[in-house]
Amino acid sequence: MSTKNESRLANVEVIESNFEALNYICNPQIATAVFLAYHLEKPILIEGPPGVGKTELAKTTAEMLDLECVRLQCYEGLDESKAIYEWKYGKQLLYTQVLKETLGEILGGAQGLSQSVDKLHEFGDIFFSEQFLEPRPLLKALKHEEGCVLLIDEVDKSDHEFESLLLEMLSDFQLSIPEIGTVKANPKRKPLVFLTSNNTREISDALKRRCLHLYIPFPDADLESKIVHARVPEVPEKLRLQLVAFVQELRDMDLKKVPAISETIDWARTLILLHSESLDADLVRQTLNVILKFQEDIENVEAELQGVTNRALKET
């Protein structure tokens, strides 16, 4: 695999700093995964809790390499006609109509059935041909001349069958369309594939085997603070450290849904809008619904709010 901006993937440090320039702060594991995915020409399966930047990683990589990001959002019932290709049925039907009407002209002068059939065979079969093919994301990504980043988002939401459909694409960067043949990616510009999964169900071993596996956990306080700084630079440092400490503590609590990085960032933005300089219990209580998405969780945390806030203030 090579790409027009290969130098941006020269080594792990370069990748890390390039990501940072695009406001995506990553740890060495993430950079290593991207580095290997490129050099081994393998897709990356990214797992981790929601909101830790799985999808963002693919998008940022596309941006860094200056490639198009082709995205396929998975959902239950997704099948090949939505993911790989679809025939243009309307056109095909019209074609048969046209064919029917002009059949007389085409077969004009043929004597007997066998000659007519021979004539029909001479006639190119374009009913199933690329002209009538509507490419969907996977095929589009393969046929991309410049190479691209293919993001197969939330692959765990799709069915088992769809996973099997992906296998050919992921291991050989090719797709077989029975009527046409095999479509291969440009060997010099293979797409860089990212799959994300929220682990709502176990991904099959066959799929896992074909991928590099990257697990992105919640970041530690240090990294999270850096991320907030990169994303919301206008937050004063003191407030940033406080809110990160607060969120980190929430993650240790027994909640239905713990706040992710995206929620920390939203919260930071909210606090900026409110012109806050520092956390206090009242402020937290008013804005708690930004980071917690279940009434149950909010009630649980409210009971301990004062304590958690004080600890977050003390830590920083």
């Binding site: 060495p28 995964a33 290997l36 050099h39 896992k208 085997r209 991928c211 596996h213």
Partner: peptide
């Protein structure tokens, strides 16, 4: 072959990404 043996942390991350597939 790509990573080499020089950087242990790098080696560990790389092998972990290639060989282990669940948390």
């Amino acid at each position: 072959n790509i990573v080499g043996y020089e950087d242990r942390e790098f080696l560990k991350n790389s092998l972990s990404i290639v060989l282990s597939k669940t948390p």
